[in-house]
Each structure stands twice: as structure tokens, then as C-alpha cells.
Design a protein around this nucleic acid. Structure first.
Lengths: 342, 342
DNA sequence: GAAAGGTCCGAAAACCTTTTCGGTCACTGC
DNA sequence: GCAGTGACCGAAAAGGTTTTCGGACCTTTC
């Protein structure tokens, strides 16, 4: 292991050093290293050898300064702590990582001032583009500053219609969920969701209703809006069973809610999925696979959403900037809690 | 709302533009904007005005090229998907964010090749330092490449003792956990943990044993190592109750395990916390607060760990590089599952 | 009135890389 | 032997900022 200790303080090795060692000019060294033509193979070899020997690493700053492009993008999120930003971020990092692009990560903590601060910092670092990741699917105001690089909004769309936004298709997700339950033979379907303030909750309910309408079914009871918590799931399930004992499926607004619903069903002696099928949203692995039985859930494909945002940004950097709100489809991940009715 | 549309293609405004508009030289403009002395107040005012009018944003690339410092650091994580990297990352971002430092985020996906690739990219971007975040507390090999900037290892320590690592103090955490249970009046304490391969599991068990020894108590049964899953918690709790029915407290290796234990206890008719106290590890909010009763848990203070890593990196950049493994203390977050024995 | 001193400003170098363009050299064909 | 032709290499500029240092100008003092 020839792991040389960090030679702190030593000036970084530059192209001139390589050129000197190889006995050529910097111009030739540059061309040799970058695979430009008009360099004698033997010369190129000498340069490469010298570069390897000095473990030369070209200074991206100088390169970026000259090229007007830095190969960096900014990822601006509102709440890193939330579990939605992260997969998106991963997907984006993934899509960029293949190429030569590095990602600046900034968390605005939901604070507009901090957001502006971060945007300024990113612009001064001359990022080639910006992805703005929201913490919910509710539309958010566009960036306050005039930005001369392309911007893609992910998860939370921009309120400005001329901006490009990429969001999960929650309406269709609700539809798919109910269709799955119907395919499992369920006809008396209830919906316990989270906070009504969230467009995600309303959109999913709307999609669910659409699927019910299409099948000529009615929702059992009203949509029970509450909180995105297990406790709410437990409480709401209790009320539901009291009022609508004949229910045979519960679509839940999130996996947390579903976990609560599962708990109450178990305590009330209802078997899942035999008596009642339960379905969650988000496909949060730790909750879905830890449940008894394991929880069928709708996955929002957030990583794919992140990748899509990254791809869109690429296109916007190289060519024309897209507009409007684009959606990424969700998918149903079937587990034990919605086995077909026997 | 003077949100001008992105003027794509327009060359970015430079200091020369500002200087020209203000009727001074670039040197003077630079000094005026950077608060250097030897600039007439009136001149400075003119320059500031011009800069504001053009919404000038200094080019960090040029600045970094000259200064030899970029004000950027690299954050290299092995698994962004895991829930441990994220709070650390947030803490680091937090500590940096106050200043003028931006963070490059890279996820190596646990792949050594990808890691080297990322390190090279970061070095070519001339980061001022590097934080390497592991996915478990098990020691990891040091970076493969010779790196001429300071490196701080967070969560997973480096195997090389001359490196600087910052990790949670799991041994002491296990001790604190048992001390808390004893303080709650428990004396027949069992320990159900996760995968024995993880040093975190072994360290916590060691600390727990130390606290028991100090109190003159014995562990009820053996440490039950298994998996970091709810299912294991349920199964292990069942076996525990069969073999050691007199147990009055269960220390769990993670919140997931604890959730499983809570489930089994409830089904077996044991009241929590009256009959049996339950305690988790990680203080994973969604699991701990969703539980019935809410779960007492040991918080590893990962955000603080991230901040500590960032601070250590700062110091290493400005001054001398620290060495060895440093620990960040954990803390017990008390909730309903360990109320004092009545 | 001249020297001294102080205040403010600008020219130029430096940071490192890429690219353009002109120059050198060897070789070919007459 | 000489023009012509490639092949290869190097000088220099460009990119935007900071810093140094010299110069210009004004005020003060003898």
C-alpha cells in the first residue's frame, strides 16, 4: 500500500510541471492529455507517463473558467430531513454521476432567505443548472432571483407555468391503487388519508374516486383526512369499523397511516388480507416490510423522478428549456396485505 | 416581482463591466467590493451601485483559482439511502452553511471504484477538504488515493490510526441505556439486538454489560443477536418470554427491533411500561413516536456528529490535522415505554 | 516655493488550462 | 537543389479575479 501521506502545503502539481518533466510545452502536454491530434504518439506517451508519475489532476477551476462551463449543478432542497427529498437526490446524483457532473447540495430548511443565499452562492460558483426539490407536492413560488441557468423543479412544482416541473402523478396513483383493490375482489373500499392541506392527499383521493366511479362503486364513508401518523391511522380505523363494519378494503394515505390501520384491525379481530385488504402509500421500506402482513404500497418512483429531473436539466443545458409540469408515474408494489380475496 | 426571465446566452457580467460602469479600474472595483481600504467612500459607493445595478456576482472559479482555496468541501458517503448518512450530512451542511462553504455531495454506493472516481473528481475541483461518511460504525479502509487535503471520517472510522475519525460512542450509549432502565427501577433486563456482525451491536452490548456489572446485576438470558428488523424483534421477544418470563425490561438494538418487541409484548398481554419497559436505539422518529406507547430510545446525535466532523475539517484546513478516533456522546430520549416502575 | 507625507487610483502580474495560429523540420517529387 | 507538403510542436492569448506596487494628486510644513 503505497499510500503516501498527504503532502500538505505543497503546491498542487500543474500542467507546467508535467510539461517540464516530459520535456514539452504546456500546449503539447494539454493536447496529449486531452487526446487531441497533432501529437506524436511517442510524445503523448512521455506526457502521460509524466502526468502519472506526478499524479497530475487538472484544475477544474481553470478549465471551467475558460470553457464557461463547470460541469457542476446545484441541488437545492427545502428539507433534507424529510424522506422525500433523499431518493430524488439519489436519483439525480445517479443520473449525473455517470458523466462528469458534480452536485452541490444545499438545504434551505424551508427558509426563503436561506434559499436566496444558497442560490447566490451556487450562481457565483457558476453551476450549469439547478434542481429545486420541494418537500411536498404542493406548488411552491419560483426562485426569487433572476437565474441565468436552467432550473428544474422536482416533486414540488413551481407556481410559474413557464417553469419546468417534474412531479409524481398522485391522481393516477390513487386510481391505480383502487384498481388494484378492485382487482383483488374488493368492493367496499374506504379511504383514510393524511392532512387535507396536502395536495398529495387530495389528489390521491380524487384518483381513487375516479377509479371507483369507473367501476360503478361508491366509497365506503367519506374520505377520512387527518394526519400523516400511525396514531391517526389507528383512531380513524376504529371509527371506520364502528360506522362501516362491512368494509373489506382500506386505502391509506401513507404507510404510516396504514400501519396504524393494521394495528386496529388486528385488535378488532379482522384478518388482513382475508377480511380486509390494506394498502399504503410511499412504499417506505422499513414500514412496509416490517408490517404484519407486509404492506402493499404505492411507490412514487422518486429515484426515477430524480433521474428524470437530472435528464431534463441536461437537455435544458444543452438545448432548449422545457416548460410546464411533467409527471412521473407511480407503481403498486404488491405485498401480503392485499392478497386476492379467497 | 421583477423576476426577469433567464437571459440565456448572455455573457455573465464581470468585474470589468462593473468597473466600466462605475468609471474606475477593475482593481479599484475589486477593492471597493471587498471592503479593502484605500478606496474613497464616494468611489466605493459608485462601485457598489454599479454592481447592484448589473446584479454582479463574482466568479468563484477565478477567485478560487487565484486564492488556491475554493470554499468547497466534498462529502463522500457510501450509502445515501441509509438513514445514518443523512443526519450527518445535514449537520455538516449546517455547520458549513453558516459560512461561505459549499458542499459537493457524492454517493459511492459502497463501491470502491466509484469512490475513487468521486475522489478524483473532487480533487480536480480543488475541494478544500473531504468528509467521508460510512454506512455503519465498522472501520473502513482509508481512501485509496493520496489526497493532499484534510480528510475527516465520520460514523465509520478509518482503519488507519493516523487518520481523523469521528464516531458515536456506542459503548457508552449501551451503558447509558441500561443505567436509565435501572433508574426506572428495573432489575431483570434482557437485550435483544441486531446483526452481531455490526460493531454497533457488539459495542452497545458491551456497554450494557458494563452498566449491569457496575450495578451488580446480571443480564437476563444471553444477548439475542439477529437482524435489524421488526420481525426479529417479534420472534426474539417471543422466545425471551418463553424462557425468561420474569423479565421486566428489554433493551433493543434498534427501534425497529423494539417495535417488534412491543408487538409481541402486547399480544402476550404484558403491559408496557408497567410490566416490561422497552427501549430502542437510533431514535428514529417515525418509529419511536408512532409506537404504543411511544418509545424511549437512544439518540446517536448524528447531526451533532456531522457538525463535529465539519468543525474538525475546518480546523484541519486552517491549522493542524488532528488524528485518531474521537467520539460524540449519545443521549437517551425518554418516552412512554420506560416510565418509572410504579 | 519646495520637500515631505498622505490618500487614492490604476497597470500589471499571477492563478492554470485550452485553443489558435504560426513556426520548424523532414521528406517528397521534380 | 528547391518548392511544396505534412506532421508536429510552442508561443501567446483568453478567461475573471485579487494583490502588489508605482504613480498621481493634494495637503502640510519649513
Amino acid at each position: 500500500m503505497a499510500r503516501t501521506p498527504a503532502p500538505r502545503g505543497t503546491r498542487a502539481v500543474t500542467l507546467s510541471d508535467v510539461a517540464r518533466l516530459a520535456g514539452v510545452s504546456v500546449a503539447t502536454a494539454s493536447k496529449a492529455l486531452n487526446g487531441r491530434n497533432h501529437v506524436h504518439p511517442q510524445t503523448r506517451e512521455r506526457v502521460l507517463e509524466a502526468a502519472a508519475q506526478l499524479s497530475f489532476s487538472p484544475n477544474s477551476l481553470a478549465r471551467g473558467l475558460l470553457a464557461g462551463r463547470t460541469g457542476t449543478v446545484g441541488l437545492l432542497t427545502s428539507d433534507l430531513v424529510g424522506r422525500f427529498s433523499l431518493p430524488i437526490l439519489m436519483g439525480a446524483e445517479d443520473a449525473f454521476g455517470a458523466g462528469q457532473v458534480s452536485v452541490f447540495l444545499c438545504d434551505a430548511r424551508g427558509d426563503a432567505i436561506r434559499e436566496r443565499h444558497h442560490v447566490q452562492a451556487l450562481l457565483s460558483r457558476r453551476v450549469d443548472g439547478l434542481i429545486v426539490v420541494g418537500s411536498s407536492t404542493d406548488p411552491r413560488p419560483p426562485l426569487a432571483d433572476a437565474v441565468d441557468v436552467p432550473v428544474v423543479y422536482a416533486y414540488a412544482p413551481s407556481e410559474a407555468p413557464e417553469d419546468l416541473s417534474i412531479v409524481p402523478d398522485n391522481v393516477n396513483a390513487g386510481r391505480m391503487a383502487v384498481e388494484h383493490l378492485i382487482a383483488c375482489g374488493r368492493t367496499r373500499i374506504a379511504h383514510i388519508s393524511g392532512d387535507r392541506q396536502y395536495s398529495a392527499a387530495r389528489d390521491r383521493a380524487a384518483g381513487a374516486q375516479a377509479a371507483l366511479d369507473a367501476a360503478g362503486l361508491d366509497l365506503v364513508g367519506e374520505v377520512a383526512y387527518g394526519a400523516w401518523e400511525e396514531g391517526w391511522g389507528r383512531a380513524a380505523a376504529g371509527m371506520l369499523l364502528d360506522r362501516e363494519p362491512e368494509v373489506d378494503a382500506v386505502l391509506c394515505g401513507s404507510d404510516q397511516v396504514a400501519r396504524g390501520v393494521l394495528d386496529t384491525l388486528r385488535e378488532r379481530g379482522r384478518r388482513v388480507p382475508e377480511d380486509v385488504a390494506v394498502m399504503g402509500f410511499d412504499n417506505w421500506d422499513v414500514l412496509a416490510t416490517g408490517a404484519r402482513p407486509q404492506l402493499t404500497s404505492v411507490d412514487m418512483n422518486l429515484e426515477e423522478l430524480g433521474r428524470a429531473a437530472a435528464r431534463a436539466l441536461f437537455e435544458a443545458i444543452d438545448a432548449e428549456h422545457g416548460r410546464g409540469v411533467h409527471t412521473v408515474q407511480c407503481r403498486v408494489v404488491v405485498r401480503g396485505s392485499t392478497a386476492s380475496a379467497g
